[in-house]
């Protein structure tokens, strides 16, 4: 075989195996983020897939007690609803975390309930995508435990949650939700979680990219400041997943204004969600098919777009 022939044979073999690999990776839908379309889709997909492949089950770094930040930074937030202050005055005894949606057994949990659950404390870093960071010790219940109690229905892939302020929500996927370091955190540095840091309860998801702040601005755009501002119940660290949910959370945010515990729409219902979310079925809304997710009419819970929620309401 002459030089050129041999080279093109090698090139063909390389091409074929490259194609085979690409196909194998493509087949692993867990490596493809739903935001793989659009001008940044290729970059998002590479970043997401590579991060997942490289990181695997690795745990986020935990730090020695001496590294806890003396002055952690509480990102300011705007006015909270009156109802929240009233709850705060009563020590959040009437606050509830409602776990709802695609679960076998919807839950409504008080802070006391959460505190009785298996607890995990971890010293991890909050690293905002803006560039700043601090280290604190977080105490909380693994989200996985709460989800196990509720019993996830088959097909669940995402968990979303919102806060007392409407339009403040976030989403993580099941891998992140089930990660041992993902906490529903009610304590910080040995005490109760201060409101400035997201009290009474915040999602603390240090593993892997959960605080890879990569994305959450996207859909909020200039609204970001206000999004950060919700403070209470907010999870500051978020991840790629979030952006996938561009459409559902939007619709969710709209719908959530009038949602009650049962997850049905109750327009005009003034009770605000404190912490909420939903779980989506991948089949019903293939993450990639943007159009199938985008709906201009607020969906009713239980439709294909939104199949479930974890909600916490005032009541």
């Amino acid at each position: 075989m002459d030089r050129i022939g041999r080279r093109s044979l090698i090139a063909m073999l390389a091409g074929a195996s490259g194609f085979g690999m690409a196909k194998a990776v493509w087949g692993r839908s867990d490596l493809i983020p739903p935001d793989h379309g659009g001008p940044y889709g290729l970059g998002n997909t590479l970043t997401y897939g590579a991060s997942r492949l490289v990181t695997g089950d690795a745990l986020a770094r935990e730090f020695p007690r001496t590294m806890i930040s003396q002055e952690p930074f509480a990102n300011g937030f705007g006015a909270l609803p009156e109802a929240f202050h009233a709850m705060n005055d009563r020590g959040f005894v009437d606050w509830r975390l409602v776990v709802d949606g695609m679960v076998e057994k919807p839950l409504s949990l008080s802070l006391a309930d959460l505190r009785k659950m298996p607890r995990r404390s971890q010293i991890t870093e909050v690293a905002c995508e803006e560039g700043w960071s601090y280290i604190a010790e977080w105490h909380g219940t693994p989200l996985a435990h709460v989800l196990d109690l509720a019993g996830l229905k088959p097909g669940v892939k995402f968990i979303s949650y919102g806060t007392i302020q409407p339009n403040k929500w976030d989403t993580i996927d099941l891998d992140e939700a089930m990660h041992p370091q993902t906490l529903l955190s009610f304590g910080m540095n040995g005490g109760a979680l201060p409101v400035e840091f997201g009290g009474p309860l915040r999602m603390r998801a240090p593993p892997a990219g959960l605080q890879e702040p990569q994305v959450h601005h996207d859909y909020h755009g200039g609204e970001f400041d206000r999004v950060r501002a919700h403070g209470a119940g907010q999870r500051r660290s978020r991840l790629f997943v979030v952006r996938w949910h561009m459409s559902p959370p939007r619709t969710f945010a709209r719908a959530s204004r009038g949602l009650d515990h049962s997850g049905t729409l109750a327009p005009g219902d003034e009770r605000r969600l404190f912490m909420s979310g939903w779980i989506r079925v991948p089949k019903a809304s293939t993450p990639s098919r943007k159009s199938s997710n985008v709906s201009n009419t607020p969906p009713v819970f239980g439709t294909s777009a939104i199949s479930s929620s974890i909600l916490a309401t005032l009541a």
Partner: peptide, 8 residues
């Protein structure tokens, strides 16, 4: 600076 890679 990637939390993912920092974990790995």
């Amino acid at each position: 600076m990637s939390p993912y890679l920092a974990a790995a």
